[in-house]
Amino acid sequence: MRVSGIDCGAKFVKALILDDDKILAKGSAASGFDQKASAQEALGKALKEAGFSMEELEHITATGTGKEEAAFAQTTVTEVGANAKAMSALHPSVRTVIDVGAEEGRAIRIDDKGKVVDFAINEKCAAGAGTFTETMARALEIKVEEIGPLSLKSQKAVPMNAQCAVFAESEVVSLIHAKHSKEDIARAVHDAIADRIASLSRKIGLEKDVALVGGVARNVGFVDSLKRDLQLDLLIPEDPEYSCALGAAYVALEKAKGG
């Protein structure tokens, strides 16, 4: 049974196609000014990879901030619900899912059946989401992909006081002027955001195993800082940015089976 899950995120739309519980294809597109078109594009890419047409999909479920824009989807699910679904299916031992996307960070606690017990979201503030590292990379005049590896080379921790992405930008500039190395500043950036994500996770009562998903999970610098802050290991699935899309696809599968 072929279904699709589509996650309309703030920065990217991710689409994933399942044939029963086998992942057939994935596709993503930058969230443009017209998110409807971006959603179409992402799904189009996934369909092309899978080699069939949209008509052959039994059900499509959308999630993400722009889920209403995916007009072709029959149902929607929240990001919290989608993440819970995806992680409990992939790694049944997971009790806490930390999802850090471009504009939101969330922590979700699930039980052994994948049911959501508790969740907390940090939204509408760039300091607690991926945009923060992106803005800081710009202030450091490096590419966003570079900030993570750079941070791992840091020799010492430098405190960062600003709690706002705009103010942190000027703090980064003054840290550069104060002759701190870019490596140490990069780590300060990751420690700062990890601190906020960690306290969000503690708020819901962190329980092992802990999975980290969302695009920011690809940032090795952030992962390192978060592990240090939480003092535990993090389970990171392959293609962590597709976690929501995968969860949505599982929901679609249930719907298609008449669930």
Binding site: F33, E103, K124, C125, A126, T131, T135, C164, A165, V166
Partner: peptide, 13 residues
């Protein structure tokens, strides 16, 4: 958006 960073991207849009 309240957040200046998000307001800026909204404005660009």
């Amino acid at each position: 958006s309240t957040c200046v960073v998000f307001a800026k991207s909204e404005a660009v849009g």
